[in-house]
């Protein structure tokens, strides 16, 4: 815990300080709290360019991490995550269509559209894959569905009247924080209230659900309703992230696993908040890398998370978190 909080403060400071120009920590703190003796340009850089992006990244990572933890326990599938089962892609398709074709939607409605589309894809996939089947099956179905939706995202964007270039495609395919400014933060902020609510309320039902349907039912938990509500909550956490930053992948999948492995617990009441913090740290680190590594090019943060996340997933699979196969 202590390590994690130190790490998060460190990452926040680093992502505020590094870039062009790189500022000293003192200057960053000065700019933030408006002390005298800080150049206006620096203050502008820190407060209006980097700070919203850092807040947006932390918010996105936190919500994704918590969402993944809820989803994995709700579906009792270690491979569940909004990016793997098509929820993120579906939400992104909705947002991409609205943005690319300039459909007459008020900006405030973007997260709502993303939520609706995410819920639709989520329900679709759950109606296709029974929870009792092999967790691998859901991964395969989700991968196929995601590939398909991505083809539609590309089609929608290329067909749009004024094609905005590659960067916009990548915002909707892999997720990017480069467009996040104060406006976007304002858009997502009200939804962020969901985060502490979910962390506080979801832990106990999740722990009971994990014991299996029959046991949970015996303990007086309405399994179907609880599961539906929790699943909707996990989509709710993802929707605003997709609306402002696109479908950043692998954070929701990996953060809960890291937490469970490090803390050696699967108690949802512990995993949920720690996974949220871990997700925030991961996104900020990846985004800072995205800004700096190939400077002056900027590579969308979702690409970094995908490039790092795919091998992590391979390792997780090999470590046998998924050994549920019949023995020979």
């Amino acid at each position: 815990m202590i390590v994690l909080s130190c790490l998060s403060v460190g990452v926040v400071l680093c992502s505020l300080a590094w870039g062009t120009p790189t500022l000293s920590v003192g200057k960053v703190v000065g700019a933030l709290f408006g002390s005298a003796g800080v150049e206006d340009s620096h203050r502008f850089i820190v407060r209006d360019l980097r700070l919203p992006r850092v807040i947006g990244g932390a918010l996105a990572g936190g919500m994704l991490g918590a969402s993944g933890a809820v989803m994995q326990d709700t579906l009792r599938n270690p491979l569940a995550g909004p990016e793997l089962i098509g929820v993120s892609a579906g939400a992104s398709l909705a947002v991409a269509t609205i943005v690319a074709f300039r459909l007459p939607f008020p900006g405030v409605a973007l997260p709502i559209a993303a939520l609706a589309a995410g819920l639709i894809t989520g329900t679709l996939i759950l109606s296709l894959v029974s929870l009792k089947t092999n967790p691998m099956h859901m991964l395969l179905v989700g991968a196929a569905l995601t590939a398909l939706i991505n083809a539609l995202v590309i089609a929608a964007i290329t067909l749009a009247p004024n094609f905005g270039g590659v960067s916009i495609i990548y915002r909707f395919l892999v997720g990017s924080l480069s467009d996040v400014q104060w406006d976007e933060i304002r858009l997502a902020a009200p939804w962020a209230i969901g985060l502490p609510l979910v962390i506080l309320l979801a832990g106990r039902p999740l722990n009971i659900l994990k014991l299996g349907d029959e046991v949970a039912e015996g303990l007086g938990v309405g399994v179907r309703r609880t599961r539906a509500v929790l699943f909707a909550a996990s989509v709710l956490l993802v929707a605003p992230v997709v609306a402002i930053a696109g479908p950043i992948g692998f954070i929701a999948l990996v953060s809960p696993h890291i937490v469970r492995r490090l803390l050696r617990t699967s108690d949802a009441r512990v995993v949920l908040p720690v996974a949220a913090v871990t997700g925030a740290v991961l996104v900020l680190a990846a985004d800072t890398a995205a800004r700096l590594a190939l400077h002056p090019h900027e590579v969308a943060v979702g690409l970094w998370t995908a490039l790092l996340g795919a091998p992590t997933l391979l390792v997780l699979m090999q470590r046998g978190i998924l050994r549920r196969r019949p023995s020979a």
């Binding site: 590579v299 995908a306 699979m317």
Partner: peptide, 22 residues
């Protein structure tokens, strides 16, 4: 399963190239 993961990594690598070439 390895195929699914490799596919994800390869398409990320493609995206990388596309973004860098611009």
């Amino acid at each position: 399963l390895t195929g699914v993961v490799v596919a994800a990594a390869l398409s990320a690598a493609t995206s990388f190239l596309v973004l860098l070439s611009g």
